[in-house]
Simulated scan of single mutants.
Amino acid sequence: MLDIKVTKTTAPKAKPDEKHLGFGNHYTDHMFIMDYTEGRGWHSPRIEPYHSLELDPAALVFHYAQECFEGMKAYRAANGRVLLFRPEKNAARMQSTHRRLCIPEIPVEDFVQAVKALVSVDKDWVPGEPDTSLYLRPFTIATEAHLGVKPSASYQFIIIASPSGAYYAEGMNPVKIYVEDEYVRATPGGTGYIKCGGNYAASLIGQMKAHDLGYSQVLWLDGVERKYVEEVGSMNCFFKIDGVIRTAPCVGTVLPGITRMSCIELLEKWGYKVDCESRLPIADVIRAGKEGKLEEVFGTGTAAVISPVGELRYEDEVLTINGFQTGPVTQRLYDTLTGIQWGTLPDDMGWTQEVE
């Protein structure tokens, strides 16, 4: 168990209007920091007033991108309780990311304790308006000052928190997706299955291209054959085709999303046939759309939870899905997940943890 030193701010910030939070615009009074030093391990866990970081210009994070992050939320239940959703899964995924990037791992129990400690200190920042939450951003950066490609000898693990509204300003409405077949997001043996900033930087050009064409997100194809669907921007993607719900397998190029995992477990519990192991060619999606068998498409992720897809464009083909309306399975998943997260439905899956 971590011995976390807490230093509270003497100058609390004014809290923003919960009805107009936006996403990722505001930050709480405090932050969690823990250091790593080679030969000593992870040490000095602490909660301090939110402040800027001071890093050497030669810090390895700036030059060789040895860094990673997680995304999770704390929710205000109607009875005032504050809930976390499967935080141990984020902890385990960050361990996987650390291994891939040659960063020393943080024990799952230490990660969860750190998250709970920060949320507890900043509990009054967890908003209570509908569809709001406290977005949590744990991240790790390489801090050693050295110009040369090697694993850092020192790191900082930091958690910041941001009271936020819905990820999409338009709310739970279908979005338009552009299928990218020019640029590549991830390749086998690469870093597509972890949450490192380089993945997102590399995806920006496809995102800008989609926006210029009037689309809000990019559906990436595999990096070898440009044939199989993988994931959408910051989300995993599901396709309901002729009664079967399919999503790309996590085989090294697709992020194993916590919301993705939860949707699969719910769908299987409800009796749907789910195929999350075989690859899905984009040609099959287009064919299903033309034949009227593409029943629903939706994205899943921590930020948006569930995002219905109403239009899909691939090359010169444009498909309208379910009359540009949110489908019944998509809606049921959204209602169930958010009900569990905000405590309005019983958590019969055992997914939430209360912050004291």
Rank of each mutant, 00 (worst) to 15 (best):
K13W: 09
D3C: 07
T9V: 04
K89A: 14
D122K: 01
L2C: 03
G233M: 09
K176N: 13
A283K: 15
S278P: 11
P188W: 03
P130N: 05
L83H: 00
H146G: 14
P57A: 08
T330P: 00
G343D: 12
G223C: 00
P57C: 10
E295D: 02
V305A: 04
P49E: 07
V355F: 07
Y27I: 00
Y168N: 10
V309K: 10
S154E: 09
C250G: 03
G171Q: 04
V121P: 00
K8Y: 07
C250S: 10
A92Y: 07
F239L: 06
R100N: 08
K240W: 14
D275W: 01
V251H: 15
M172I: 14
G197D: 05
C196E: 10
L255W: 03
A304Y: 02
V6A: 05
V254N: 02
T253I: 09
P87A: 04
E38V: 06
G252T: 07
V305D: 06
F139H: 03
H211I: 15
T338D: 08
T302Y: 14
M34L: 12
T140M: 04
E67Q: 11
Y27L: 06
C276A: 15
I33M: 12
Y272D: 03
Y193A: 15
V285Q: 10
G327Q: 01
V218A: 07
S44I: 15
E311A: 11
E230S: 03
L204D: 09
Y50A: 14
R226D: 14
E277P: 12
Q95F: 14
P107A: 11
G206C: 06
V126Y: 01
V244I: 04
S234R: 09
E295C: 04
M34Q: 07
Q113G: 05
T187Q: 13
Q341S: 10
T320D: 07
D284R: 08
Y228R: 01
F157P: 12
V305S: 05
D124A: 09
E354K: 03
A92E: 10
H51M: 11
L101Y: 08
V82D: 02
N173V: 15
E291G: 08
E129N: 11
R185P: 00
F32M: 06
C263F: 13
E231M: 01
E129G: 08
P138A: 07
G323D: 09
R246T: 13
I160H: 03
T191E: 14
D316V: 12
P188M: 02
W125M: 01
A78K: 12
T326D: 11
E129W: 09
V119Q: 06
L319Q: 10
M235V: 07
E268G: 01
V82N: 02
R93W: 14
L319H: 10
L333T: 00
V108A: 08
L136R: 02
R86L: 00
G243W: 00
S120I: 12
S216W: 13
L337C: 05
K89H: 12
Q325G: 09
G214P: 07
M349I: 03
V229L: 11
E225R: 05
M349E: 07
C276D: 14
A65M: 11
T259H: 10
P249Y: 00
R226G: 13
A78V: 13
L267C: 13
V305L: 09
L294E: 04
V229F: 06
